[in-house]
Design a protein around this nucleic acid. Structure first.
Lengths: 345, 345
DNA sequence: TTGTATGCGTTATCAG
DNA sequence: CTGATAACGCATACAA
């Protein structure tokens, strides 16, 4: 069975293999790395011994030499449906390209984002994939890393101040599709549950929202625009306030499904009809919205693809000898129309 | 500003600090590690220079010496609501205890579980936190690692063959609460959407299901027990079949909310009433079930706590000099009763 | 074709 | 109190 009788507690090193064969470690190393100038017999015996001792190269030692860990750090604000899918895409691409993924959640807190960045950098990740937290106001730390040419790819929630590679949705298009649809359904007083004011996605979707209103000659009523946390409860209360206000909206567009679900709860509680009294369109097309009564229309995007793409761009940079110019990939959303917004046949 | 004018592209090493100060690296090392025998002045100047050069200890070099990476590998079948919360708990505890988390998703595939384990082991994680995939039949690889005293903590979906530390739910209790409740509401023909047959959670919940039926003198009808993937579509079709069968159930208990949602869709499609014709109870208490019409009862558990606990146990082992005896922590579930199962006032 | 020596960044063990 | 040196596991330039 085990001719050498060698059974270490600790994993075998290249040294053990060399010793067992009475050859030098450099020969073993060469044999393993398929270098040309090594005797076939020697190579075979090395391979056999490697098998027998269950030798596996120590990645830490390799990392010390190359200063590469083949590890990607991921910083996301939470692990809701959208980011779960994005992480799945990242993990998928990482597996394909030989990387492993370290994930840290900032819990929508910039302070924790800072801590996590430190944590990941200390663990010597080769690069970073980041989506900002909702109270992320400062970009200094990323600026510093980028100025040292440390590879970072941002996705979904990005900062306009940063000249960095990023993968985003065409949020203006998404909002435009949503609001155009609502207008076509006869809605005239369309509210916008905007989410956190400083987030790129909130702002971009707001631009699409306002432009579309203008395009159709509808007035922009700032009292119909509500900022808030990404919190269902918040949206619920905001919607109650909107309903009870003198100029009640006849439609609500939400920056995320989580908010629009809160809105739906509020509307139901007030006994109003959806979509006849108030029509609804959300964002992200989370599975949950199709199950509600009525099912809620939503702007769909592929978080999985976004994650894959972000990882792909990062790995391309990691595998490149020189610094790649920063680029922005923009993915296209699709409006999924459901009963919550369809008034006409 | 920068007296030495030193601005490296590569991060400064302890050697750079020593050179800049014209002292030896061992002195720098000692000063940094707060060793007793080092001159206060020297220590101060070292600290200043460390600041100036933005020196940070290279963890890879440390890892090479200690063979510890302060990294925890996590293998989970997917990132649905339950596992997202669990990961959050793990990450939370990891942050507290100075670890970083590497996450791999097996996508419910044992083959990928194998690959991921290799991936994580290669990356030299200090320990593993594992929840089995649904087609996980073999435990050999974990057995091998455990026999080498490599620290692993299992959670939620565990294998009975493995004598390892684990954190699980009291699944029997959860199922017992659910079925007892249904019986008390007058249900007599209770179906069980069991999920994958080889999973511990399916089996344990089945035990609770059967025991409770027996306790109340109800017959166990195997035709009311349906195994399937963790797939809503699957549950939907199974439920249609159950409804159309000669002995239609008057209640359905689901091993997970995802399945029970599929069941609800089927029941609605057939125009039956919930809970009057068929009552429903799910498992996990995902937020979505409270939003459906009618809201679905569910057995609630804290995935966050489970994750935290699993990480806690693993870190305890990692920080311990000797091998800790394996233990099983069992958490308690709570049935949340909602309209989908309440027939009596 | 193979062996020796050096270095990656750090700590620890010795001498001074 | 401080400095030189070996060691961690491996790759590689250089010798033989």
């Amino acid at each position: 069975m085990n001719r050498s009788g060698y059974r270490p507690d600790k994993p075998a090193t290249i040294k053990d293999v060399a010793k067992a064969l009475n050859i030098s470690i450099s020969t073993v190393s060469r044999a393993l790395r398929n270098k040309p100038d090594v005797n076939q017999e020697t190579r075979q015996s090395v391979l056999r011994m490697v098998e027998e001792l269950e030798y596996q190269p120590n990645q830490i030692a390799l990392s010390l030499i190359t200063q590469k860990t083949h590890t990607i750090g991921v910083i996301i604000p939470n692990l809701d449906y959208f980011f779960s899918m994005a992480v799945r895409g990242i993990d998928d691409m990482a597996l394909e390209t030989g990387y492993t993924v370290m994930i840290c959640q900032s819990n929508e807190s910039y302070a924790r984002e800072l801590v996590n960045t430190q944590r990941l950098m200390k663990g010597h990740v080769d690069g970073l994939i980041v989506s900002n937290s909702s109270d992320s106001i400062n970009t200094e730390q990323y600026q510093r890393l980028l100025s040292k040419n440390f590879p970072i790819v941002f996705f979904d929630r990005v900062s306009s101040e940063l000249d960095a590679t990023s993968v985003v949705l065409d949020n203006i298009s998404g909002a435009t599709q949503a609001v155009t649809h609502l207008i076509e359904q006869g809605c005239r007083r369309i509210a916008y549950l905007a989410g956190p004011a400083n987030l790129s996605i909130s702002q971009q979707r707001m631009i699409g929202y306002k432009h579309t209103l203008e395009k159709y000659g509808l007035a922009i009523d700032e009292s119909l625009i509500v900022f808030s946390e990404f919190d269902r409860e918040f949206a619920y209360r905001s919607t109650l306030a909107l309903i009870d206000s003198p100029n009640r909206p006849d439609a609500i567009f939400g920056v995320s499904d989580r908010l629009i679900v809160g809105a739906q709860l509020a509307i139901k509680e007030r006994g109003l009809r959806i979509p006849e009294d108030i029509a609804l369109v959300g964002f992200n097309d989370e599975p949950v919205v199709s199950l509600l009564t009525p099912p809620i229309s939503s702007v769909a995007q592929s978080a999985f693809e976004m994650g894959r793409m972000a990882a792909k761009l990062l790995v391309e940079q990691l595998n490149s000898e020189h610094i790649l110019p920063s680029q922005t990939i923009m993915l296209k959303p699709t409006l999924i129309k459901r009963a919550s917004s369809i008034r006409k046949p």
